[in-house]
Design a protein around this nucleic acid. Sequence first.
DNA 1: AAACTTATTGGGCATTATGCTCAAAAGTCC
DNA 2: GGACTTTTGAGCATAATGCCCAATAAGTTT
Lengths: 160, 160
Amino acid sequence: MATSRSKRELDGLDAEILLALVEDPDATTVSLAQRLSVSRNTIQSRLQKLNDGVLESFQRRITPRALGYEVTAFMNASIRQGYDKQTMKALSEIPEIVEIYATTGDADLRLTIAATSPEDLYRVNQLILDISGIVRTSTAVVLREFLGYRTKPLLERITE
Amino acid sequence: MATSRSKRELDGLDAEILLALVEDPDATTVSLAQRLSVSRNTIQSRLQKLNDGVLESFQRRITPRALGYEVTAFMNASIRQGYDKQTMKALSEIPEIVEIYATTGDADLRLTIAATSPEDLYRVNQLILDISGIVRTSTAVVLREFLGYRTKPLLERITE
DNA sequence: AAACTTATTGGGCATTATGCTCAAAAGTCC
DNA sequence: GGACTTTTGAGCATAATGCCCAATAAGTTT
């Protein structure tokens, strides 16, 4: 079978628009048109199409650090017997848990945790361990951010 | 010495503005003023102050999946003797590497990788292993996203 | 209490951006 | 060539922005 991409295909212009928006989140339609040397109408129609697809995930994101949560940690947690709803619900009720992914491995969850301090992290860790479905955890504290979230290279590749 | 917070303190209104922006990334100053029942001038001055601080990190983010990278994986990599620049540079030249953090543990790096398919992930993994500073890796593929990145609860807490 | 600082408000006003429409020109596919 | 989609330029009413200013409200200091 062929590639048959179900996703809407992004062309170079789409990618360039996204790139420009990554660099300047509040760029206006007019400024995008100037920058990319296309008409305003083109930008407008592209953005419209993008809005019902890619841009849904193109949300604003704020780092916990900006809110005073200085410590970030990644945590692996094992859970008992599958992903029961109660456990997941209990986890998502903890504000400091910023992400939860289920990964390959023995019923493993990977959590991202924001805490104000190491002691605070300990506290949150205890909260998590108190949840009945959680079996054991291992935590790795972030010492340094070498590369913050980026998709630029991925977008640039589409630009050709 | 006192707490001496170097970070600008966010008050409830700031948090409410940020919350509104998380929900509607393209909200206008006018609409924010209406929604929060404060004057437009207030919103405008708050945003100005936020811009030189919190909002710098309040960027738009696009998920690799929207670009056709269906597979996300977390990878732990150990590196030889400290974080030498060459190794880090080599890593950041791989477009599929979306994040790099140094974490506690024996000289551990934690990478987030975007790949188009499992085979593609394997390819990227080989690329990484070919870097001289990298000793060994272990990869966990994301099976399911239980909780996408969120800071809402953290912001709501500030709102009181 | 009085003085002082800071934040908020309401008003105005010129400039810019938006949303929408339309028809012509340019490309693309078969 | 004909059919189709995309881009373009133009227009126009409405809305938003970026300033400015002075008055009021709120919070602090002495």
